[in-house]
Simulated assay, not measured.
Amino acid sequence: MNHDRSIATQIVALIQSEGLPVGAHLPAQMLADKLRVSRSPVNEALALLHEKGVLTREKNRGFFLARPVAAPAAELASRLGLAEPDVATAAYFQIAEDLLQGTLDTQVSEQLLKARYGLTTTQLNTVLKRIAQEGWAERKPGYGWEFSSMLTTPDSLLQSYRLRLALEPAALLEPGYRLEPRTLQRLRAAEFHLLNGGIETDTADQLHDRGVRFHESLVEASGNPFFVDTIRRVNRVRRLLSYRSMRDRERYPEHAKQHLHILDLLERERNEEASLAMREHLEHTLTALAQISRLLEP
Results as ranks from 00 to 15, higher is better:
L165C: 06
L165R: 05
L165T: 02
L165Y: 06
L167G: 01
L167K: 04
E168H: 06
E168N: 08
E168P: 05
E168Q: 07
P169D: 01
A170C: 03
A170P: 02
A170L: 10
A170E: 09
A170V: 11
A171F: 03
A171E: 01
L173V: 04
L173N: 11
L173Q: 14
E174S: 15
P175L: 06
G176A: 13
G176Y: 02
R178V: 12
E180G: 13
E180L: 08
P181F: 12
P181I: 12
P181Y: 10
P181H: 08
R182H: 14
T183I: 11
T183F: 10
Q185K: 14
Q185I: 14
Q185S: 14
R186C: 06
R186Q: 03
L187Q: 00
L187P: 07
R188Y: 15
R188E: 04
R188I: 04
A189R: 08
A190W: 00
A190Q: 02
A190P: 03
E191S: 13
E191A: 09
F192Y: 15
L194E: 10
L195Y: 07
N196M: 11
N196I: 04
N196E: 13
N196F: 08
G197S: 06
G197V: 00
G197I: 00
G198C: 02
G198N: 08
I199L: 01
I199F: 01
E200I: 05
E200V: 13
T201V: 07
D202S: 13
D202A: 09
T203M: 05
T203D: 05
A204V: 10
A204G: 15
D205G: 11
Q206H: 08
L207W: 04
L207F: 00
L207T: 01
L207G: 02
H208A: 07
H208P: 13
H208T: 05
D209E: 14
R210M: 09
R210A: 08
R213W: 10
R213Q: 12
R213T: 10
F214H: 02
